[in-house]
Design a protein around this nucleic acid. Structure first.
Lengths: 196, 196
DNA sequence: TACTATAAATCAAACGTTCGTTATGATGAT
DNA sequence: ATCATCATAACGAACGTTTGATTTATAGTA
């Protein structure tokens, strides 16, 4: 039989369950059963339950690094904007989990938030601003446009949709087709407001 | 001695503690001690812990009814927009709690979300849309403006700020002066994008 | 006013359950 | 021989709930 590594299995199961019900909403007994792994593996691979939670967190937020690469892509501002929206939507699949983190049940949530989440959100915003500035320079976007305002409105807009659909059937069951539909929807809004 | 009623004391304490650490992050022992009340009062006044949580929720969301009255106010669209922003900011003092609710630890969160939160958010959005439409009709706002897009961008924008400052010192310690500063800031952004 | 009976509000203690952790010994793969 | 994994059991701590007794408030009666 193949050598198994249940570390990943634990992480993926924990990601789903913690996203659904939070750190204190899931017992490690239920978690290990759902993962099909012995309960003692949690202490074996991680430093207990909070250690597992921290590992999940770290993995969740590492995905933001991809966002930073969009700026360097060899494509026009319009394509980059679309890429940002696409990335946002895929990221928002994990939104319940991220929201949980914002109001974390960890022993010292504020420190984590300040050191990871906040800079990440600000970085994302500045990348958007840069893309829009480039669009204005290249005279693709309206000259009168305020890059900071536009980026904020855009990031907020995408955000707001997910906040309002969170935890609904619509959110949980969104398909790739629905994703594309959403991307077109936001690109339409963006286009209406921004093209020169 | 006066007749006491610890119901309100329990609700106010629970509101603060649940906002900080969530339903499963606070034990009813700690909660009752913090309220200076016997633990059995929770089952006496509410139907257990979840009942108390539900009561807090209901009170939190009832504030949204005020939002609906803004539309009927006897003032211009610009004033109404400012009122909306002011209301949003004050509401966001309770943001950690509301966010918790979005990812609720209740037994059946989706039902609550669908029946309370979603309609509330949509109602708020439609009130904004109406205000903006009126502004366009009265030729105060740009004619080319898309009311739906603008309302969404605006609601999202205000939202995004709080998401990014949540759980930071900056958020927790914001003062009335800081509130006014924020209101002016958002009104500036709005004005730049919307006036005719 | 004073006494009493009833109901409401409050409490401390106990109950049974579940929690996260750790220890143990065994099994199969490398 | 080492490593990954298992099932199981045990542990003390913490959990939410319930019980039964006690205090307080209210109302009725004299």
């Amino acid at each position: 039989m193949d050598k198994k590594n249940y570390r990943e299995k634990l992480i993926s199961t924990a990601t789903r369950l913690f996203a659904e019900r939070g750190l204190n909403g899931v017992s490690i007994r239920e978690l290990s059963t759902a993962a099909g792994v012995s309960i003692s593996m949690i202490s074996y691979y991680f430093e207990g339950k909070e250690g597992l939670y921290s590992s999940v967190l770290q993995e969740q937020f590492s995905c933001f690094e991809y966002m930073a690469t969009i700026k360097e892509r060899d494509s026009g501002p319009m394509d980059k904007i679309e890429e940002y929206i696409r990335w946002s939507i895929q990221r928002h699949r994990d939104y319940p989990f991220l929201l949980r983190y914002y109001t974390s049940e960890l022993t010292n949530p504020t420190r984590y938030f300040s050191s990871i989440v906040r800079p990440t959100l600000e970085k994302a915003l500045h990348i958007l601003i840069d893309i829009i500035k480039t669009g204005i320079d290249e005279k693709l976007f309206r000259g009168g446009l305020n890059p900071e305002d536009t980026a904020l409105a855009m990031a907020g807009m995408v955000n707001y949709y997910f906040l309002s659909t969170l935890a609904t059937e619509e959110f949980i069951n969104h398909s790739p087709e629905r994703d594309e539909e959403l991307i077109r929807h936001y690109m339409d809004i963006f286009t209406r407001g921004i093209l020169s």
